[in-house]
């Protein structure tokens, strides 16, 4: 039951921020590209439910538009991680103990030695800061996460008798990986995917905060926090709401991940 509660609560929170991002394409309370200096740094009010920033922009609108950046960056980064990591993990498991397996796993270890922030720093140093580079940095870091998870999940499946039965039916490693292994690791991947998604949102916020991610005028939660920092003593609302947006989105995704894991594997519910 607890698993279901997590799933609904987490799913609900995630849905709120995802729809805020989608709605922002069609409508926002105020245009975030128009500055309104007369109304700068106003606390929450009827006209501006979450207040305005130092350029008089509506913070609610900024958060809605910023959700786009966060979600897009994290989603594409998870896509990169899965798209490359899963095939690598499947291959490594299918050729367990071979030179190829060893190369893939050592390559993974190497990428793990570069935290995503370091990858971002290097990419920025070379190509300059941008949202695209944030995506690449977080995406590269996601590859070994999915490769390892897929490999370890696949290795235990390769010892199952149904894989042996498929081999007796004359199927090769590629076909077995596609028909028997991949469908049985998808649950693991979905759960890990939501977790990496939430980590991606945190990472994007961190990178934008230090100026390595989305550049102005693109709205981003991390940048909003960076802008608010010097004004935190007299305009705490500017720091409070974007931070809460990050916190609640990440919390929602994590709860959803837990809920999904419980739903897929009732055995884990007991152990969790």
């Amino acid at each position: 039951m607890k698993g279901n509660r997590n799933l609904w609560l987490g799913g609900g929170l995630t849905l709120i921020f995802a729809s805020a991002a989608l709605i922002s394409f069609l409508w926002v309370p105020y245009d975030t590209t128009v500055l309104d200096i007369a109304n700068k740094i106003k606390g929450p009010s009827g006209a501006h439910p979450l207040g305005t920033d130092h350029f008089g922009r509506d913070i609610l609108s900024m958060i809605m538009v910023g959700a786009r950046t966060s979600i897009a960056v994290a989603l594409v980064a998870v896509g990169i991680g899965m798209g490359l990591g899963v095939p690598l993990g499947l291959t490594a498991a299918a050729k367990k103990g071979s030179l190829l397996d060893e190369l893939i796993m050592r390559g993974n270890d190497l990428v793990f030695a570069f935290p995503s922030l370091l990858i971002a720093i290097m990419i920025t140093a070379v190509f300059g800061a941008s949202a695209l580079n944030a995506i690449i940095a977080i995406g590269i870091f996601n590859i070994p996460v999915f490769a390892r998870l897929t490999r370890s999940g696949a290795l235990s499946l390769w010892t199952r008798d149904y894989v042996m039965a498929a081999r007796v039916a004359g199927k090769g490693a590629a076909r077995i990986s596609a028909e028997h292994i991949l469908p049985n690791v998808t649950n693991l991947l979905i759960v890990q995917g939501t977790i990496q998604f939430s980590l991606g949102i945190l990472a994007e916020a961190g990178l934008s905060y230090v100026g390595l991610g989305a550049q102005p005028p693109t709205a981003s939660w991390g940048r909003m926090l960076a802008d608010s920092q010097t004004m935190i003593s007299f305009a705490p609302h500017m720091a409070l709401f974007p931070g809460l947006a990050i916190l609640l989105t990440v919390l929602g995704l994590n709860l959803m991940g837990d809920g999904l894991r419980d739903m897929f594997d009732p055995k884990l519910r007991r152990a969790r």
Binding site: S198, P236, L247, L248, V250, L251, N254
Partner: peptide, 18 residues
Amino acid sequence: TQLGVAIPNFWFAMLMVL
């Protein structure tokens, strides 16, 4: 801990400064 995992550390730092 669920909250602790979700909180961005630099934001938490700003709140602590405040």
